[in-house]
């Protein structure tokens, strides 16, 4: 079971919100030092998968092995120890608004290490310089632009020199130029520190630039895993639709809608008030 090539192994992961199953029997192996991209449409469960990987959610079933040890079965203290080797960059950056940019990046060092303040200052400045935010130390998070916040989030995630870093929609809400800048930064981090990166995104342009391998999720299940070129040539209809940027087939939907109406009429012998196709589909 333990394999040194794989840093994160997901086995039979099931995640639920209440009664709704969001992720169903997910199996993944993420290699040490690669950039792995989780792709999928909106609401397919990719953010939920990421939240499970970093331990913000406990799965309903299955295991997540990090360096061969089951992350989901650990005590709180053991999880904290593993988390010190993880960094996460949130969709909205999630910088603490009550602190300056400098204090945000220095926070993990202050909380987890016994380093002197002068050492912390040097390390923090290096991290800020790395993401191109040198000189903005005293800014409050509210004074930063969207792209700068993302960069600051990356700097904070990098503060403890983690083994693995997770990005939740790094280019969401950014203009193409700034988004490309963030993609380049992800690539740069990867090359400089030999990090394992897990990126959740639905931006096809980013995938080409940053991904070593990727997986495609649909309705809580993995449709395909492999290198980006393999995924693009994958025969699964959803993979072809996703990479071909084709819209949902409207005619199929309307057929389904009519069918559901007729079934409803037969079953209850009355028309469903305000019934829509997508309430019975999916």
């Amino acid at each position: 079971m333990i394999n040194n090539d794989y840093i994160i192994q997901v086995r039979g992961l099931v995640a639920k919100y209440g009664e709704t199953t969001v992720l169903d029997d997910i199996n993944l192996d993420i290699r040490r030092g690669e950039t792995f991209v989780i792709l999928g449409g909106s609401g397919c469960g990719k953010s939920t998968l990421l939240r499970n990987l970093v331990g913000l959610m406990r799965p309903a079933a299955g295991a997540i092995l990090i360096n061969g040890e089951d992350f989901t079965a650990m005590s709180e203290d053991q999880r904290t120890a593993v988390r010190k080797r993880m960094g996460m960059c949130f969709q909205g950056a999630a910088l603490l608004n009550s602190m300056s940019l400098y204090d945000n990046v220095a926070l993990p060092l202050r909380e987890h290490t016994k380093l002197k303040e002068s050492t912390i200052e040097i390390m923090t400045r290096i991290k800020l310089d790395l993401v191109g935010l040198a000189g903005y130390e005293d800014y409050q998070p509210s004074e930063l632009s969207g792209g700068m916040k993302k960069r600051a989030g990356i700097a904070r995630a990098m503060a403890m020199d983690p083994e693995m870093i997770f990005y939740d929609e790094p280019s969401a809400g950014l203009d193409p130029i700034v988004a490309a800048g963030v993609d380049m930064l992800i690539r740069k981090m990867q090359n400089t520190f030999n990090l394992t990166s897990v990126v959740v995104t639905h931006e096809l342009a980013s995938v080409e630039l940053i991904a070593d391998r990727a997986c495609l999720l649909k309705e809580g299940r993995i449709v395909a895993v492999g290198a980006v070129a393999e995924l693009k040539a994958h025969p699964h209809p959803f993979a072809r639709q996703f990479f071909g940027r084709q819209p949902e087939d409207e005619s199929a939907r309307s057929e389904e809608f009519v069918r559901s109406l007729m079934q409803g009429e037969q079953a209850a012998n009355r028309a469903r008030p305000g019934g829509r196709g997508d309430t019975t589909g999916e």
């Binding site: 331990g55 913000l56 988390r83 960094g87 999630a94 910088l95 608004n97 993990p108």
Partner: peptide
């Protein structure tokens, strides 16, 4: 209000991922 808006902005999640317990912090 402080804790609520931090929760909405994912700041509580960020603390947890950094291994900083929100109760302590």
């Amino acid at each position: 209000a402080e804790i609520g808006s931090m929760k909405v902005a994912e700041e509580i999640d960020a603390l947890e991922v950094m291994g900083i317990h929100p109760i302590r912090f």
